[in-house]
């Protein structure tokens, strides 16, 4: 079976599920690179952090593009699990991708109201 290089681009705070979808391919022996754009990070639950670590263990990587990598998503040694990548670096890296998957919706133009955090 051919091993594929797949990028998941996450531009909307509600679509952190792209990490799980990437992990689903990683465990099928593909290389998954979920990229969180412009700081649209999901809440870093233990489940989410474990998935991000697992993607890395499977020779993929979760990236942050356009925002500093968060310091509340770390491995057991305290090292950041998410790596930073610039827009230009991302474009160059994706030239070699087998698939590029813009996941979910674009970024919202309006700020989410406080009630969103109840979810």
């Amino acid at each position: 079976m051919e091993t594929l290089k797949v990028y998941f681009l996450i531009a909307n705070r509600m679509y952190g599920d792209g990490v799980r979808s990437g992990l689903g391919l990683a465990v099928e022996n593909h290389y998954a690179f979920p990229v969180i754009m412009k700081g649209e990070f999901p809440p870093f639950s233990k489940y989410m952090s474990d998935n991000i670590a697992w993607v890395k263990d499977m020779e993929g990587q979760v990236y942050s593009c356009g925002a500093p990598a968060p310091d509340n998503c770390v491995d057991e040694e305290g090292d950041k699990l998410i790596a930073e990548i610039s827009l230009e670096e991302l474009g160059e890296a994706m030239r070699d991708a087998d698939y590029i998957i813009p996941y979910g919706l674009p970024k919202q133009t309006n700020e989410p109201p406080p009630s969103c955090s109840a979810a």
Binding site: M37, K38, G66, L87, E88, G91, E92, M94, R95, I100
Partner: peptide, 10 residues
């Protein structure tokens, strides 16, 4: 603009 930049490179 981000999409346009990425598309330009791709």
């Amino acid at each position: 603009s981000d999409i346009k930049t990425l598309v330009g490179i791709l």
